[in-house]
Write a protein that binds this DNA or RNA. Structure first.
Ligand SMILES: [Mn+2]
Ligand SMILES: [Mn+2]
Ligand SMILES: [Zn+2]
Ligand SMILES: [Zn+2]
Lengths: 139, 139
DNA sequence: TTTGTTTTGCAACTAGGTTGCAAATGCCTA
DNA sequence: TAGGCATTTGCAACCTAGTTGCAAAACAAA
């Protein structure tokens, strides 16, 4: 696990530092998306908040994580699939937020349906965020 | 036009004030969604920004306007259809942001398709935001 | 017009995020 | 494996968007 993390950083030409290792570890062991505040808490407040901001930015740029838009306009982050790289994200999947437990899921296997737009409109990207009750909280 | 605005306010049990009239007017003559900053500028900086925040909140609560989530986590507002009321929004339509001119459209006549979720997930709401080129900017 | 209620503007505050810079850490090569 | 260069970190200061308390102004009802 530790090895995989180091390799992932190397592959992206990032030096291996405590904060980067720890933050990646948090993402890999989380079962949903994480907010900046989650990381701050879960890392035991070892790192400056600025460091966390910069680490997240770097990871997004490198295609290691992607951001998830939410209805309440907070920012969430989740691991990208292997196909993503610097400047080329391929995170075309549906996101699901559980109203009950608050967990945000990347539903990688749910396809984005084609949507017929009015004449003249040409879509390049489709973001779908659903909410309701997740499989853990269901009954 | 002025009369319609006054009636809309009355129908929602809101007193008729300069700021509310002006802000409603801006929404009715806009062809897309508006951000707080747009309203601040377009109103000629006549109103305090706090007043604008509070007016927007009130309008959202009454079902006169609705918020639109965006990828860059800024907040946009647009007029609701007549069916919306306090505590009961029915704005289940697709939103479209033009990469070219920046206009955000409510596509009222585009239906949200059914999306098959993994077992155990139960959806209550679906938000779809598409982006690309709008009918004005197309060619 | 008077009176009571609602709304406004101002100032002060909060939360989330960014920037500049010196000190600390990590990487590379001898 | 130590030394030197480049990158990253932590701190302080700053910025922007949004919120709150309160007195003054505007509005609605009588
Ligand atoms: Mn995702
Ligand atoms: Mn809309
Ligand atoms: Zn849940
Ligand atoms: Zn356009």
């Amino acid at each position: 696990m530790q090895k995989r993390i180091a390799e992932l950083l190397k592959k992206n030409q990032l030096s291996i530092t405590e904060s980067r290792k720890k933050i990646l570890e948090l993402f890999q062991s989380a079962n949903g998306a994480l907010a900046h505040a989650d990381i701050e808490k879960q890392s035991g407040e070892h790192f400056d908040r600025v460091t966390i901001y910069r680490t997240l930015q770097t990871f997004v740029e490198k295609g290691i994580i992607h951001t998830i838009p939410t209805a309440d306009n907070s920012v969430l982050y989740a691991l990208c699939k292997d196909e993503c790289s610097a400047g080329h994200h391929h995170d075309n999947h549906v996101h699901f937020i559980c109203d009950d437990c608050g967990t945000t899921y990347c539903l990688d296997h749910v396809d984005i349906p084609a949507i017929q737009l009015p004449i003249g409109f040409k879509a390049k990207q489709t973001d779908i965020v659903m909410s309701g009750v997740c499989k853990e909280c269901n009954v």
